[in-house]
Design a protein around this nucleic acid. Structure first.
Length: 454
RNA sequence: GACCCGUUCGUCUAAGGGUUAGGACACCGCCCUUUCACGGCGGUAAUACGGGUUCGAAUCCCGUACGGGUCGCCA
């Protein structure tokens, strides 16, 4: 039997990190076992579902590289993949339950009579979990009154307006779409006995269940939209690489038994399996997520780096078409963690004028011989004939000798004069990129700054 | 409140009866670098608590505490 997993989002908002991770685990599991990954849209709540939300979710999954084999846009043999288009299927299953006496009407709604017996969920991650729905559901907690009240344990599966309810359509579709493994958040563990009761009443074999631990925010409560790192589209905008986000999400609740932390999507696909999933919730760590991204950035092929960085360059006013960009990216890639940080490292190379950092100027001004250094530097650079890394180094070395200083003493002033700050990319390669004329021009501009000599 | 799940450094995790409890992020220190970084090396830091079982428990059992989840005509 080939594995079939599904991600079943409800299009009522953004693609959230929790949902994305569920999608990732389902995708990985299916791909690892040579199975099929299905995207099914659970839009039975017409009032809350929107087309915009649907688009955001689709775009998010595509960005993460989680292509689906069946579902919206691609179709498949088990469609339609929007629950809002599957009413005749649900009607058929409803009739089946009706015929076997499992249903009754209650104020216009249809209820499914739950059995009065212990139902045991065999979960791959959580083990055996038993409950009696009849006992469990006969009382309900009233959050406002803060007390338990009598309740009807039988599950409403259809609204008076004819709309079907989650528990029912979820089970029907898992049967109809031949889903073999249900991998979902642990928040569904308590719902699973209800689903099992429905599978049984419908005479169907339930899929394998794997309830994965939840991702919490750093304060230990459920991630909300407002928490940093909660929304997938913000990763894209914030300068993360999709593979890095996949990598970090995979690590939240799953691990290999060795010490590897950095994985490509392909490596994850090869190595991911359910036994590696642990059962306790984890807190989201934005710093580590950034670190993972930085690691991916370091190993990205140059062409991919260019492709991913380009939008961020454009946004910062740097023309990605500039011939110096690829070299500049190489200078930036191993000192940033996010794509969005790249312009900050290299923008001055492409700028018409240098924006001087106040603190940096103060720092080099402390050297009394600053004017001497700058003029020696200017002279040395002007005299340079070999405009290469080695040639420039030799020129600076020579200039330092002229005024009885070490080369190191000239580097920081040179850096501030040319790039405006004491920190930034490796200086000599930057000078190469800038070109001799521009470097001399910047040294000159710097030396003429008012008050500098004082 | 009832039920369910969980609990190893601050965080993510490894160790499925015998380890100086390992790794990673973050933090701190040192080294390297004729600039800035990268990098390398090292350090601080954990088995929630109490009872069992056992020659021996982070590991198995029970209880307590704490955390999370569920209790909709949302999904």
């Amino acid at each position: 039997m080939t594995v079939r997993t599904r991600f079943a989002p409800s299009p009522t908002g953004f693609l959230h990190i929790g949902g994305a991770r569920t999608a990732l685990y389902n995708w990985l599991y299916a791909r690892h076992h040579g199975g099929t990954f299905i995207l099914r849209v659970e839009d039975t709540d017409a009032d809350r579902s929107t087309a915009e939300s649907m688009q955001i979710i689709l775009d998010g999954l595509k960005w993460l590289g989680l292509e689906w084999d069946e579902g919206p846009e691609v179709g498949g043999d088990y469609g339609p993949y929007f629950q809002s288009e599957r009413n005749e299927v649900y009607d058929r299953y409803l009739a089946k339950l009706e015929a076997s006496g499992h249903l009754y009407e209650d104020e216009g709604a249809i209820r499914f009579r739950v059995p009065d017996k212990i139902i045991t969920v065999s979960d791959v991650v959580c083990g055996q979990v038993s409950t009696n729905l009849k006992e469990q559901g006969s009382r309900r907690y009233d959050a406002e009154a803060k007390q338990e009240v009598e309740a009807n344990p039988d599950i409403v599966i259809r609204r008076p307006n004819g709309g079907y309810i989650f528990h029912f359509v979820n089970v029907v579709d898992d049967i109809e779409m031949a889903i073999t493994h249900v991998i979902r958040g642990e928040d569904h563990l308590s719902n699973t006995p209800k689903h099992l009761a429905l599978f049984e009443a419908l005479g169907a074999t339930p899929p394998v269940f794997a309830h994965i631990p939840l991702n919490l925010n750093p304060s230990g409560t459920k991630m909300s939209k407002r928490d940093q790192g909660a929304l997938i589209h913000e990763y894209q905008e914030g300068g993360f690489l999709p593979a890095a986000v996949d990598n970090y999400m995979a690590l939240l609740g799953w691990s290999t038994k060795d010490d590897q932390e950095i994985f490509s999507l392909e490596e994850l696909r090869l190595r991911f399996d359910l036994p590696g999933v642990n059962s306790s919730n984890s807190k989201f760590d934005y710093d580590k997520c950034r670190w993972v991204n930085g690691e991916h950035l370091k190993h990205l092929p140059a062409a991919d780096l260019f492709k991913h960085a380009s939008p961020f360059l454009s946004r910062a006013g740097i023309d990605p078409g500039d011939a110096r960009v690829p070299a500049a990216l190489e200078l930036a890639r191993d000192r940033v963690q996010l794509l969005s940080e790249i312009p900050g490292v290299i923008a001055t190379i492409f700028a018409d004028s240098v924006a001087y950092d106040e603190a940096s100027i103060t720092k080099v001004q402390e050297k009394e011989e600053l004017p001497v250094i700058i003029s020696a530097l200017t002279a040395g650079i002007s005299a340079a004939t070999d405009w290469s890394i080695d040639g420039i180094k030799a020129a600076i070395h020579e200039a330092a000798g002229q005024i009885g200083l070490k080369m190191g003493a000239l580097m920081l002033p040179c850096r501030v004069a040319v790039m405006g700050s004491t920190s930034g990319a490796d200086l000599v390669p930057v000078l190469v990129l800038l070109g001799k004329e521009e470097v001399i021009k910047r040294l000159k501009t710097f030396s003429e700054m008012p008050g500098l000599a004082g």
